[in-house]
Design a protein around this nucleic acid. Structure first.
Lengths: 147, 147
DNA sequence: AAAATACCGGACAAAAATGTCCGATAATCA
DNA sequence: TGATTATCGGACATTTTTGTCCGGTATTTT
C-alpha cells in the first residue's frame, strides 16, 4: 500500500506526537527507531523530509530531538505525511496505470475504483497525527509488535 | 497501488480476453504490448507467470499466442491476477507495516482501514476478466491512451 | 524434413527503493 | 571556551523492481 519509507514516517510521526502531547518532551532518533521498530539511519532520512515539509519540528544539540507543536498536533493530517513522502500518485493515479484515466477515457475499472479511492482520500484527510497519538496514549493503538 | 508488473498483467489479460471472446483468436506478444502500451519483453515475463498460474493459456509456434478459454473468461477474477503477480500482501497486510496487526494489537488506523480494504478485496473478487473484456469491446473502457 | 514462427527460460542490465556510514553543523552544558 | 550531544546532508552499499537479450523448445507450414 504505502512504501516502507512512508510506513516509518507515519509511525514515527505518531510516536513523536504522542510524546509531545503527553509530556511535551522531544524524542531522539534512537528512541524513535526503537519504539516503532525501524532502521535508525533510514528513519532519519524520512524525518528530514517531514521537517523540511514543516510537518514535524526538530532541534539540534543536547536535549534536542523531534517534536510536534500544539498546532502541528491539531492540524497535520495523515494525508500530508503520505504526500510528503510518497507523493500524490497513490491518491490520484489510475489503478491500471493509464497516464490519463478519466470519464473521457476511463480504464475498465475506473468507476469501480473511484469510490474506494475517494474513501481512502477522505480517511487520510480527516485523521490528524494528534488524534492518532492520543489513541496510542490510551492503549487503543500500537506502533510495533509487543510479545 | 499495484506494481508495474501487475498493471501490465491486468491490462494484458483484459486485452487477450477481449480478443478471445470477440473473435476466438490468439494474440501474439508484439500485438499485446502495442495494444496496452507496455514493454514487450517485460510483459512476456508477466504473462509467463499467469500461464503458470493457469489464469491464461498460451500456444507456441506459428498461429500461436495467448488466449483465454471460455471457462477462464467466465471464472478468472482480477484478484487472482493480482495475487499471482504481486502476492497477497497488499490485500491483507497492515497499512502501517506492523507484522501482526489485528484486533488484539491494532495499529492506530486498523479499524478505519478495514472497511476500505474489505471493499477492495470484494471489488477484485467480483470482477472477472471476461466482464472487463466485454466493457472494452463495447467501447466503455480503454487499455491505453488514444490521442 | 526443413524452415519459419512464437512462447519459454535464464542471464544480464538499469533504475528505484531501502538501508548504512560519516563528517559537518548547531545547540547545550560544564 | 571546550567538550558533548544530536540532527543534517552527502556519499555509498544493498536489495528489489523494472526492463532487455538471446538461445532453446514446441508448433505449424511448405
Amino acid at each position: 500500500m504505502f512504501s516502507k519509507a512512508c510506513e516509518y514516517g507515519i509511525r514515527a510521526s505518531i510516536y513523536i506526537g504522542q510524546q509531545s502531547a503527553d509530556a511535551g518532551r522531544r524524542v531522539g532518533l534512537r528512541d524513535i527507531a526503537a519504539e516503532i521498530d525501524s532502521p535508525e539511519a533510514f528513519t532519519a532520512k524520512v524525518l528530514q523530509l517531514l521537517v523540511r515539509a514543516q510537518l514535524i519540528t526538530s532541534v539540534k544539540g543536547p536535549t534536542g530531538g523531534f517534536a510536534l507543536t500544539a498546532e502541528q498536533l491539531r492540524t497535520v493530517t495523515l494525508k500530508q505525511i503520505v504526500v510528503a513522502i510518497d507523493g500524490p500518485d497513490m491518491l490520484q493515479g489510475c489503478a491500471l496505470g493509464l497516464r490519463q484515466c478519466s470519464a473521457k477515457q476511463p480504464c475498465p475499472m475506473h468507476y469501480q475504483f473511484l469510490p474506494i479511492r475517494d474513501q481512502l482520500n477522505e480517511l487520510l484527510r480527516t485523521h490528524t497525527i494528534g488524534e492518532l497519538a492520543s489513541k496510542v496514549h490510551d492503549g487503543l493503538g500500537f506502533l510495533k509488535q509487543f510479545s
